[in-house]
């Protein structure tokens, strides 16, 4: 699957890329129009998986794997967890008073946005053909190239992500934590599950 160029007919890969692209858009439309949060999460899952197929077709298998690991593995599961948590808590999760978006709204709005994009793309018709990657990412050397670039050219950013995750973990645990000392508990609300904070932290730690 990794060594796409040459081994699979070009027509097949372009067909696959079109199908995956349509799948990603369908998933995104499900997200926007879903009446229930649960279905929106499933829509996100479709988008994420289709996009990771596109990444493989774009000769970036490493980012495809990370996409599956972090998005499908952590983010989607975290969303599902929270949907379940809030849902079990008295089926209140879906009581959106304004209701789901009407289809005509969604389609009209997307079309408007998309037109702008297409106008841009019109100028992009002369976009250069993809340059051959200096080192194919599929080989161990390619992964090495990513690692070297990450830790040489983007060292500061790499460390900054660590700081970002620390800040995110502190903020998430603090905000979702039920009772702090020296803080009055709210009698009107039942004690929420403390796992939420742990889940937030877990997502923060799994991400890199």
């Amino acid at each position: 699957m990794i060594v796409l160029e040459g081994s699979i007919p070009a027509a097949l890969t372009s067909l696959l890329s079109v199908v995956a692209g349509l799948g990603a858009i369908a998933g995104a439309l499900v997200v926007v129009t879903a009446p229930r949060a649960f279905r929106a999460v499933m829509g996100l899952l479709i988008t994420v998986v289709c996009l990771s197929i596109e990444y493989v077709l774009l000769a970036a298998p490493v980012i495809a794997f990370i996409q599956i690991l972090v998005y499908a593995g952590a983010v989607v599961v975290l969303f599902l967890f929270v949907v379940m948590l809030l849902d079990l808590d008295g089926s209140r999760a879906e009581s959106s008073s304004r209701g789901p978006v009407r289809w005509e709204w969604a389609i009209g709005g997307t079309a408007a946005f998309f037109m702008i994009g297409v106008c841009g793309i019109y100028y992009l018709a002369k976009l250069p053909a993809p340059a051959a990657p200096a080192v194919s990412e599929a080989t161990p050397d390619g992964v090495q190239a990513i690692g070297v670039t990450l830790l040489r050219d983007y060292l500061v950013s790499f460390e900054a992500v660590a700081v970002f995750l620390l800040a995110a973990a502190v903020a998430a645990i603090y905000v979702a934590h039920a009772h702090g000392r020296g803080e009055k508990a709210d009698p009107a609300e039942p004690d929420p599950a403390p796992e939420a904070g742990a889940a937030g932290a877990a997502a923060g730690k799994e991400a890199p």
């Binding site: 500061v156 950013s157 900054a160 995110a168 905000v175």
Partner: peptide, 21 residues
């Protein structure tokens, strides 16, 4: 670098969300 700038903005924003709450 663009990425360092973006990450700096993200760090300060995510901390600010926590501080606001």
């Amino acid at each position: 670098g663009l990425l360092a700038l973006f990450l700096g903005i993200e760090i300060l924003s995510v901390a600010a969300y926590g501080l606001t709450a």
